[in-house]
């Protein structure tokens, strides 16, 4: 998500600002921001709404891997709820892959069953 835009509109609404940890977002450095991998119709295995990061585990073909998202606080601003996803849901995902080539990454956008798109970063 464009944090600055979200920040401005959220500030206008009198709600919370988007935030980043003090040091550069260390975990994000592990993901390749220059690439986006798209997978359609992956199955949600687990949706963990927790700190420091929400994450979703998905099964795509024979692969099962975890995708890191933003914090629950920031995810809420982007329209997610703690029960937005549950095991068995089929979603389309767009994510930044891990730089080391292992399965997994940082979820960029999830498209839910009904077509709704949610930013996860």
């Amino acid at each position: 998500m464009n944090r600055l835009k979200t920040c401005a509109s959220v500030l206008a609404a009198g709600l919370l600002t988007v935030s980043l940890p003090a040091m550069a977002h260390h975990s994000f450095a592990m993901f390749d921001q220059t690439k986006t991998t798209d997978r359609k119709g992956v199955t949600v295995v687990q949706f963990q709404w927790a700190n420091p990061h929400v994450y979703v585990v998905v099964k795509s073909g024979t692969e099962t891997f975890a995708l890191e998202c933003n914090s629950p606080s920031n995810m809420k601003q982007a329209g997610w709820k703690f029960n937005t996803l549950k095991a068995g849901d089929k979603i389309d995902i767009s994510y930044f892959p891990l730089r080391n080539g292992k399965p997994g990454g940082a979820l960029k956008v999830a498209t839910l069953g009904g077509g709704k798109k949610l930013d996860a970063w």
Binding site: N2, T17, S19, L20, A24, H25, F28, A29, Q33
Partner: peptide, 18 residues
């Protein structure tokens, strides 16, 4: 209380040290 102005430069580059 929340920071105002919001302090973090958002040029999208997550690999830039604050």
């Amino acid at each position: 209380w929340e920071r105002d102005p919001f302090p973090f430069d958002d040029d999208g580059d997550e690999t830039k040290l604050v």
